[in-house]
């Protein structure tokens, strides 16, 4: 696996572990009525599992297996930007409701996630082609 795919996949694994832990605590609270403040972690649970786990894993695996161009994965900088931006976005939009009352960090987090998705699309677009043929 190329380095970026390793980093993205392992970051997705960390997000999965984090999101699943929050989910287990929240469901236990729902079931048993303990730790009632854990409901505040629900946005972080959703962001980390949907964006941090599922979307990021798709990015990592796509970077690895999409057809290469001339044996290379060109414009990898966009893919790196995507991974950094996506993780910062998930952190900001998931965790900031716990720390700040203002809505702007959630908005900023979502915008960072969009930048990440756009950057990954820019990277992947030319690689979506018939393998072995020029784009």
């Amino acid at each position: 696996m190329p380095r970026l795919a390793v980093v993205a996949t392992r970051m997705a694994f960390l997000q999965l572990g984090f999101g699943a832990t929050l989910g287990a605590i929240i469901l236990t609270t729902k079931a048993m009525g303990i730790w009632p403040t854990s409901w505040a972690w629900l946005p972080a649970h959703i962001e980390s599992l949907v964006i941090g786990w599922l979307v990021q894993l798709a990015f990592g695996v796509a970077f690895w297996i999409l057809p290469r161009i001339g044996g290379q994965r060109p414009q990898a900088g966009f893919a790196w930007l995507a991974i950094v931006s996506l993780n910062l976005g998930v952190l900001l939009s998931g965790l900031s409701p716990l720390l700040l009352a203002a809505p702007w960090p959630v908005l900023a987090g979502r915008m960072l996630s969009v930048i990440g998705v756009a950057a990954f699309a820019l990277h992947a677009w030319p690689r979506v082609k018939v393998a072995g043929l020029p784009g």
């Binding site: 989910g23 287990a24 469901l27 236990t28 079931a31 048993m32 009525g33």
Partner: peptide, 17 residues
């Protein structure tokens, strides 16, 4: 339901771990 759901939560967590 309480014990069933609590067990469900931690079984899924163990699977992820």
């Amino acid at each position: 339901a309480g014990p069933i759901l609590a067990a469900s939560a931690w079984l899924q967590w163990l699977a992820v771990a």
